[in-house]
């Protein structure tokens, strides 16, 4: 029985650095397997849409530009995403991955929450079309 059983801890920590991180001044690298923003590689995609089928948050859409030549654009909503990586698990062609670098995703701009992945000309084509017609282009979901 004694009083002040943690006094030693307190005195010792007087001479130590703070336990908290100095974020945002010092940014420690994230672990390798961190589930950050989704990355998409259009060159390997076959458009099977298995990723969309199991997404618990409806965070991904796949727009087919040219089905025969396998030209797809993925529209990804980082604000809807729950970062569970089920889409990465489902993808049989390894065209999806979660980034360990892009994890500071908070922003005040709404535009940042719609990300288009695909070949530049395909994305441009889509955005142009949407701007001209004033309506959303048809997109495929299950």
């Amino acid at each position: 029985m004694k009083i002040g059983a943690m006094l030693g801890d307190i005195l010792r920590s007087l001479f130590k650095k703070p336990a908290t991180e100095l974020y945002p001044f010092v940014k420690n690298p994230a672990p390798e397997d961190l589930r950050g923003a989704l990355q998409y590689d259009p060159s390997k995609c076959t458009g099977c849409q298995l990723c969309i089928k199991d997404c618990p948050a409806n965070a991904i859409e796949l727009v087919t530009v040219d089905k025969v030549n396998k030209r797809f654009v993925m529209r990804y909503y980082p604000d809807r995403c729950v970062y569970c990586a089920q889409c990465v698990q489902n993808c049989r062609f390894k065209c999806l991955a979660m980034s360990d670098e892009q994890w500071e995703l908070a922003t005040t701009k709404r535009e940042a929450f719609v990300v288009h992945y695909g070949k530049d000309e395909d994305v441009e084509f889509l955005l142009e079309k949407a701007a001209n017609a004033g309506v959303e282009e048809p997109c495929i979901q299950e």
Binding site: P31, D33, L34, R35, V82, Y83, C84, A85, Q86, Q89, M98
Partner: peptide, 21 residues
């Protein structure tokens, strides 16, 4: 937990039939 699963809170380790990490 963050190092082995990729997230601090919702580890999302399980999938039906096994694990993903």
């Amino acid at each position: 937990l963050e190092m082995i699963t990729g997230n601090r809170v919702h580890y999302s380790t399980n999938i039906l039939g096994g694990v993903k990490i």
